[in-house]
Design a protein around this nucleic acid. Structure first.
Lengths: 241, 241
DNA sequence: GCATATTTGTCCGTATGTATA
DNA sequence: CTATACATACGGACAAATATG
């Protein structure tokens, strides 16, 4: 497979995507990010410079620029004079991520910001816009009916991204999107995606319902309990794997 | 000035510094970061590849790797086929940063985590460790007595980093450190650093006192008011400059 | 509006040092 | 311990895009 030099349609998934026409290094980073997130490049495996640059049809220089991008996103790690490897999450990493999520997501639910920055300059009188949350819950349920557990997981992430958006900060959204990407490195270790995501459908619905009633305090507390449970599951998966 | 190829003592200030011996690109990034943060490279100025690589004594390829690191930290921006520029904060950027800070710092004060991750595995029974906050307040006051307004600013940042640390997540700390670096780009536009930092000495002390009394709720609310006031000042500076 | 100079984007070849079989 | 493979870093080259006169 080669990365075509100039055109290219990627870049949407990039946390740094602005209105900037992607350079080759950017597109290579996009390709590698996708491969890491889809598990084609598994945690701990080395991504060899020479081999990859040949496979992608780019120079080693360009590839190394792409590496720096993904190292900054914590998806790759650099070991001096040994090379670049797909990041491997350890238990403390997972705990740290969930501590982060508890702080951010609970605060976003407890103190949602009136105008959630994004477009449709809204009916933001008082109550926040929960339509993205509702859509994510609906999608998750539909996917569960179809037994499409991977899509249930995707909807779950979308729900929590939407919760983060209640905080009203674009860069917070971006940080959290990057953090969820990191988490996928650990999700891959979970043997049964159904057992992972299924129980959280009802929890998300409950959190949404409480927020919709304007009971931000209880909504936030339910989120905390959700995250505690999720952390325990992921930690278990990481420690067994 | 040249960047010596292998040894080097820098790297401490880097947000991504682990226990990793810095590569040349890392050290170049450290040098450039310092220059940007100290205002030697001013907002909006272009950092030309050829000129800089000659000045630093590194190849263009290595310099471009360093660029990617700093672009990821949002200190530089890349404009395709035009070059790399020192980031310039606009009003929406500043507002976004303060929205972020309100959410994180207020939440950290309202719900401090028992063991604040870092070493000294503590007397963390119940009450959080506020010694870093107290030290920052003391340093700020001492600097104010010496009329050292720049150091007052440094102590102020230290105070808020310490507040963030109450959240108990290392990567949250790292994100916030990076965010404060970004903010320095705007601080540079403020004509009178005394007028900027002086009024916040008393506020920080008050926030600390409330937290020390265990009144997390009011401490958090005081922080919110601090941040609203600070945002207004920085926005004014950005819009005038 | 056009021709030219400059700078970026990208590639290649290569020398050196470091880790590992 | 030697040998091999690989990462590190440099310099040169050329096309393409942008800035300049």
């Amino acid at each position: 497979m080669t990365v075509s030099p100039l055109p290219g349609t990627a870049g949407v998934g990039s946390p740094v995507a602005m209105l900037e026409r992607p350079t080759t290094a950017q597109r290579v980073a996009d390709v590698l990010r996708e491969r890491v997130l889809h598990g084609e490049l598994r945690s701990g495996t080395q991504v060899a410079e020479l081999q990859l640059s040949a496979a992608l049809g780019v120079s080693r220089n360009t590839l190394r620029e792409a590496f720096q991008i993904l190292i900054g996103e914590r998806l790759l790690v650099h070991e001096p004079h040994r090379g670049v490897f797909v990041r491997r999450l350890r238990t403390p990493d997972v705990r740290d991520i969930y501590t982060f999520r508890r702080l951010v997501e609970c605060a976003a639910l407890a103190h949602p910001v009136q105008s959630a920055h994004a477009g449709h300059f809204a009916h933001d009188a008082g109550s926040p816009d929960l339509s993205d949350l509702a859509a994510a819950v609906a999608d998750g349920r539909a996917a569960a009916r179809r037994r499409a557990w991977h899509e249930v997981g995707t909807a779950d992430v979308r729900f929590h991204v939407a919760v983060t958006a209640l905080g009203g900060s674009e860069r917070l959204d971006q940080v959290m999107r990057s953090l969820f990407a990191e988490l996928r490195l650990a999700f891959q270790l979970v043997p049964d995606p159904r057992a992972l995501h299924r129980p959280f459908l009802a929890r998300n619905a409950e959190i949404l319902a409480l927020a919709d009633q304007g009971d931000h305090e209880r909504s936030s507390r339910r989120m905390r309990s959700y995250l505690d449970a999720a952390e325990a599951q992921i930690v278990a998966a990481v420690e067994s794997g």
